[in-house]
Design a binder for these strands. Sequence first.
DNA 1: CTAGGGTTAG
Length: 673
Amino acid sequence: MCFCRCSSMIYEFDFNFDSLYIVVQIHPQMKSISNYKAKFIPGITAVTVQSLLHIHHQAPANPFRSTLPITQLDDFTAACYRRDLPAAMKALSFMQKHQIWADSVTYSELIKCCLARGAVQEGKLVHKHVFSAGYQPKTFLINTLINMYVKFNLLDEARALFDQMPERNVVSWTTMIAAFCNAGMKHEALKFLIFMLRNGVRPNMFTYSSVLQACSGLPSLKQIHCSITKAGLDSDVFVRSALIDNYSKWGELPNALTVFNEMETRDLIVWNSVIGAFAQNSDGDEALNLFKHMKRCRFLADQATLTSVLRACTGLALLELGRQVHVHVLKYNRDLILSNALLDMYCKCGSMEDARFEFTRMMHKDVISWSTMIIGLAQNGFSHEAIEMFQVMTSSGTKPNYITILGVLFACSHAGLVDKGWSYFQSMEKDFGVKPGREHYGCMVDLLGRAGKLNEAVELIHNMEAEPDAVTWRTLLGACRIHRNMDLAAYAAKRVLDLDPDDAGTYTLLSNIYVNTSRWEDAEQVRKVMKDNNVRKEPGCSWIEVDKQIHAFVLRDSSHPNIDEITRKLIQYVQRLREVGYVPDTSFVLHDVEGEQMEDPLLYHSEKLAIVYGLMALTKGKTVRIRKNLRICGDCHLFAKLLAQMEDRNIVIRDPIRYHHFQGGVCSCGDYW
DNA sequence: CTAGGGTTAG
């Protein structure tokens, strides 16, 4: 018990320095407050009591207003709680001069106020004030200051403050860990977790939900999940959504789903996490199912939900559903991320009219909006418009980035604009500050290669700054196939296999090249290596939707009920198309050197089986939708086009969208494009 | 009483 005399009034205190709590009991004359709890600062004075009373609006008409310091502290406290920053700062400078201190809570209110207004200078003044001689800020207050610096993006200041703290609690550590995560400094974040454990501070759910961000892409996820479970912290929704998101980044959707399913109570963000997980891992169907489930549970979709739903539509090329989502997007039409997702949906679904309309309507556009349009135009065959769009973009003052320029180079490649592409490539670093990366080189190899300038393409690879990878060489290999340059193709194929020894398609191609050039021994050698390495060609698989039923065709798989009829039809169609000059490209099939069993190579083409089945269904008046139609090779596309022409059924076959267009790739039938 | 989770272009 302690007494404090202030003029004629006597206050009694119960205080406890350790817990920093103080129980104030007012003299019987002021019995309105009893057992009143508040923060306490050492060196208690009448002023403190006064401010405590004031904070809780129970100050009686008091006898202290006459003395200047008390009035100032009063003003300060009141201003902090009113969130009146200028008044608070004015009072603060006075207090600084007269060595008067307020309590931690009041300071933390002031810091909140600085944060809300982005007042960095004022925040720094508060920092200086509470660290000036005569006052010892408590851990709580320093935590608040550290958080302020973190939110102002002043990591160095935050770090310095953290380093000089006499004591650090779980909040101090968590604040720093979260800061590192936000800045993308994963390793620092994990290092701090380890230091924290060494210092004997136990992480809580706040810590883990941050730490999990730092683990994305690191193999320690399982360990962390275990510690969370052991510590009994896995019932927290924040931790759960972070876990879901993490498993999603590893592509471990079953684990993500388990974490989700085990939850008793869910909130919107957890729903968004799990829907996003499936949408991002190109399982649009499951994402949409979850979305339906979410609506049945009476949750209302927000921007993040709709963004993921749009992404699911994009992956499935579900233009109609995308349009329906668009209606809901209208209510958030100022959300840039959502608008960009909508743009991309229209582009990827091939509706450039809608995309252009949306783009024009958008009030704010960022580099992603522009890039989406440039890439969308280029993918849909409007290469020149894409390049014009890029010029409008740069003159409108938006700085292009790595991806934008990839899109522009792709547009040039698609349109065969060798010189233009080359000049963009050469000046990109000077003009836009983007250093050409491996993928830009890959685009140029594609551009030169498609244009038949194979030697220049090789030379470019040899002069690359970054090391060429398997994709780079595969791009060259694709170009060699187009231009039938066997020698260079063999060279490129070997480079691919050096870097990616499991690439079955490339073995096949290399072996075929040797067969075609009568180098039987080399061909045999390739087949042997393939066998020794136990490399198997992944069976291609194609889907087609007929009357809302999905029909899958897998290589050598005869489980489809109509497979015999479809096969007969395919052979028939190919025969008829051959008569009009179609030469099927069968270089993807592994030739048998001994020539023992030469099956019709066309039957290996699951894509063609799907196309034929679709056509048969159309003839019967059914509704056919081609799904996963974004990766179709040149031969299958040609086949479909000729078939449509021949049948004259008014079928429109769109030019294929080269989905993984910046790199050499393989279509689902195993062919290069 | 300070600290934590989900959303867009390749």
